[in-house]
Amino acid sequence: MARPSRFDTDQFLDAAVRLAAASGPAGVTMSAVAHEVGAPSGSVYHRFPGRTALLAQVWLRTVERFQEGYFAAIEVEADAWRAGRAAARHVIAWSRAHPEEAALLLYGAEDFGRADWSEEHIRRADRGGRRVRAALGSLAEGLGAEGARAGERVTLAVIDLPLSVVRRHLRAGLPLPAHAEDLAEECSAVLLGPPAGASCSGGEE
């Protein structure tokens, strides 16, 4: 009977997240991950054929975990204006709960070697990207935001602006302040405009 493995894939990916948060993508090597886990290098190569596959897996697992909650935050609200505010809050709340993963996502897929990824990994990344674009498109439609400029404003409100709050603090090695979620939501609400049925002077009831 085969002996059960002492290490599983998630342990190696968790180690890769810690290394990326501390030293960037360059810090994620096969030997560094093995050392971080306390495993022989062969155990890492048993699960990942090489560093490119390891980088792809750690990036994709992290971004997909973030997106799962992000889509849920948007979809739980029937009203597009509230959904946009919830999405902005989620960026901050998820980053607060997962600071190492958030630090990793401050880089891009290209920093994790996307140009050399397998077709399977690229398809997986593209599938997530399409889902994000579809969600933003639906949100813009629900808000009545028509045209390229309006679409950019929605993206700024629910992605770029809250990420800038996360980036500024995490890159400085500082925790996110207690007011970060509220601030992101307030700024998002301004960019998204008044809720449906509200006057410009009346605000939300």
Results as ranks from 00 to 15, higher is better:
residue 102 A to Q: 00
residue 37 V to P: 06
residue 28 V to T: 09
residue 72 A to Y: 06
residue 49 P to E: 11
residue 67 Q to M: 15
residue 34 A to M: 04
residue 37 V to E: 02
residue 78 A to N: 12
residue 82 R to W: 13
residue 55 L to H: 08
residue 39 A to C: 07
residue 59 W to K: 01
residue 79 D to Y: 10
residue 32 A to C: 11
residue 81 W to V: 11
residue 56 A to R: 07
residue 85 R to K: 10
residue 86 A to L: 01
residue 72 A to R: 08
residue 18 R to G: 07
residue 44 V to R: 00
residue 40 P to F: 13
residue 65 R to N: 15
residue 52 T to V: 11
residue 90 H to K: 14
residue 52 T to Q: 10
residue 44 V to A: 06
residue 94 W to E: 04
residue 70 Y to A: 14
residue 99 P to I: 09
residue 18 R to F: 08
residue 77 E to K: 10
residue 82 R to M: 11
residue 57 Q to H: 07
residue 50 G to Q: 03
residue 26 A to E: 02
residue 67 Q to T: 13
residue 65 R to D: 13
residue 64 E to L: 07
residue 92 I to D: 00
residue 80 A to K: 05
residue 82 R to A: 15
residue 83 A to L: 09
residue 77 E to I: 01
residue 22 A to P: 06
residue 101 E to S: 11
residue 89 R to H: 14
residue 84 G to A: 08
residue 58 V to M: 01
residue 77 E to M: 05
residue 37 V to D: 09
residue 61 R to P: 13
residue 83 A to S: 00
residue 76 V to L: 04
residue 42 G to N: 00
residue 35 H to L: 15
residue 73 A to L: 05
residue 58 V to Q: 00
residue 33 V to H: 00
residue 83 A to E: 03
residue 13 L to P: 07
residue 49 P to S: 11
residue 90 H to W: 11
residue 70 Y to N: 14
residue 58 V to P: 00
residue 92 I to S: 07
residue 79 D to C: 12
residue 15 A to F: 05
residue 34 A to G: 02
residue 60 L to N: 02
residue 75 E to A: 12
residue 26 A to S: 12
residue 56 A to F: 03
residue 79 D to Q: 12
residue 92 I to E: 00
residue 101 E to I: 05
residue 13 L to G: 02
residue 65 R to V: 13
residue 103 A to L: 05
residue 52 T to G: 05
residue 51 R to V: 02
residue 75 E to V: 15
residue 76 V to H: 11
residue 96 R to N: 13
residue 45 Y to E: 04
residue 62 T to K: 04
residue 77 E to V: 09
residue 30 M to L: 12
residue 97 A to F: 10
residue 42 G to M: 01
residue 50 G to D: 11
residue 35 H to N: 14
residue 23 S to K: 15
residue 85 R to D: 13
residue 61 R to A: 01
residue 23 S to M: 10
residue 73 A to R: 03
residue 49 P to C: 08
residue 89 R to L: 13
residue 41 S to Y: 15
residue 72 A to P: 00
residue 49 P to W: 10
residue 98 H to Y: 06
residue 81 W to G: 02
residue 38 G to P: 06
residue 34 A to T: 08
residue 28 V to H: 01
residue 53 A to D: 07
residue 68 E to D: 14
residue 26 A to Y: 11
residue 69 G to C: 07
residue 27 G to Q: 03
residue 79 D to M: 08
